[in-house]
Computed example of a mutant assay.
Amino acid sequence: MLKKATSALSVAVLLGSLLAGCGTSGDKAPASSAPAAGGTSDAALKPEKQLIVAGNGATVEQLMKDEIFKRFNEKYPDVKLTYVSGVSTEIVAKAKAQKASPQMDVTIVEGGEQEAGRVEGLWETLSEKDIPSMSKISDDLKTKDNSGVAVNFTPMGISYNEALVKEKNLPVPTSWNDLTRPEMKGNLTLSEISSNFGRSTLIMLAYANGGSEKNMDAGFEKMKTIAGYMPTFAKSAAQLQQNLQNKSAVYTTWTMARSLVQKDAGLDMKFVVPQEGANLVPNVATMIKGAKNPNAAKLFIEFLLSDDVQQLYATKLYYNPVTKVNLPMETAKMLSFDNSKIVKFDLETVGSKTPEWIDRFNKEIAPKVGK
């Protein structure tokens, strides 16, 4: 039986607040500048003169530089902002390498990588005293030991080019096991399991066949079949996107947010949460332990939870907000999904087991590519 999130992520917070609270693009949520009970206002923190933020590249980096940084500087004009782009695994590895002398202040990484960094002791503990809006976040999206703050999230699933599916008379996917169907050969692109996309797919293949993140044998067996359908595993999300845009692939596994962004790029991809369920992918902001600009870091994380930034994440990148904000009705509908299918991974297990899974992938799966 699938292990499902049953409490506040009862994504009721999610969709309940999205759909019940949506309005026109001009609607604003109630002002939330007052600090949480027992908290302090941001006026109590004096920011340093600079802040170095690390996070994903591409559209995420563009939004950060073009919109979020500019708005933060309107409020704190004396803070020089620098952005370091990379995939989550690279950012955590960089933070680990710099542990003795941190060169970054804030990271925004996916949940599994954030947990791996927590185990390594890379993140400072955060509190509502300095980041009052932490109190608005569902318990199911909170990190262990308050080692970070979720700033948005999106579900994983299967994405496909509807036009090519019809043209080639291919199946519409409804199950993770559909990835093993013979029709997938030559039509599928997946990422390596060092990426969250590939790793989540592997775990969900285990769940779909009686396993879990604590019993991955079934997932690896299914992935052996899938490997034979592809010339290679993609090294990055950019490569997945390229394979879809040049139509060398019809299907992939990634997040709903990634799928929806493709429409803005002119590629109409359909997204499904398979019948066995899917995990959520939160993006988590952390403050590096020993950060040289701690006040600016705390103020920036609080800023990411503001109504304006939460709305930007939703309308520009199609990430679900983690706080209750009003969204345009069209956006709220696009971001809706069947929350009864959410599978909540044990991120501590995922974080600790990923190196072992990668070794096993390299030994058992990689040699079967294209065979």
Rank of each mutant, 00 (worst) to 15 (best):
G26I: 10
K142W: 04
K142A: 03
G211W: 06
I365W: 02
G351D: 11
A44P: 01
K363G: 08
E356K: 07
E128D: 06
G21K: 00
L122A: 10
S191D: 11
T24Y: 01
D217N: 07
V84L: 09
I68W: 01
M184P: 03
E128A: 12
P182L: 09
F337D: 07
V60L: 13
S340G: 03
E276I: 02
I91S: 05
S340N: 08
L2M: 02
S306G: 14
K289L: 13
Q245A: 11
S259K: 01
D105A: 05
V284Q: 06
P321A: 12
L312Q: 12
D130H: 11
L188D: 05
L335R: 01
N169S: 15
A227E: 04
Q310H: 03
L347Q: 03
T40S: 11
P30N: 14
L179A: 12
A249V: 09
K270A: 14
P282G: 07
K363A: 15
L304E: 06
E192A: 09
Q239Y: 04
K28V: 12
V87F: 04
S147V: 00
T82S: 14
I158E: 12
K235L: 05
I158T: 09
T232Y: 14
S352V: 10
V281N: 03
L188T: 04
E67Y: 11
G23W: 08
K168D: 15
E192C: 05
